[in-house]
Design a protein around this nucleic acid. Sequence first.
DNA 1: AACGTGACCAACCGCCTTAAG
DNA 2: GCTTAAGGCGGTTGGTCACGT
Length: 216
Amino acid sequence: MRKPCCCDKQGTNKGAWSRQEDKKLIVHAGQACWRSADLHHCGKSCRLRWINYLKPDIKRGNFMPDEEDLIIKLHALLGNRWSLIAGRLPGRTDNEVKNYWNTQIRKKLKKMGIDPDNHKMNQIPQLHFHNQPQQCTSASMEKAFNPINGDADMVSDAGSCLEDDRMSAGSSHDLNLDLNVAFSFLSPTVVAGEQKKLENTEILENDEIPTLVLFN
DNA sequence: AACGTGACCAACCGCCTTAAG
DNA sequence: GCTTAAGGCGGTTGGTCACGT
């Protein structure tokens, strides 16, 4: 049974924030506990309001083309990890990125004939083993991509991903795989720049890394 | 002017993780 | 180590506005 959220308690507001509530929240921003703001919104709501709207360094307005490109690329790498994607876009919030993706980018990609969920032209991402192409499970892809975020356990994670896939495939082949994600729908300059960035990440410096080829 | 429709986005919901006691 | 409250995050909803009929 789910524990009741603080929002379910009596005396908490739902809905839009007033200017006075915003002012109060700004005064209390940064305190350890959002509830200390003594507002009639629950702590989660206070946090959300601050992060998505009141924080001073928030960049509002239209997304630049390069921001859009970056979102697409990061989404291809990370999936719907909006907070991680937003972390690479200074001044943008996860909610903003998520909304932009769902309302703008998703449509654009569909128009281009690209499946926005997997960034492919109706093909399935595959892990290529030495002798036999093997479809990567979503769980293992998840593990494989975690290292991009600077996870200290990235090597073991990638390894366990491979182990998972190997076990599920009933294969005992040695793995010698490298990460290679294609962004053929992006401009050549953007792709070159991103590839350079990827080359600087630890994941590509390891010898035993899965190859993930996204066919476009 | 009234109504319908679609787009946008702020806010909520529910699950999961984290941390305090 | 266990329990529980709070925070974090992704998915979803619903209010508002613009535009077309």
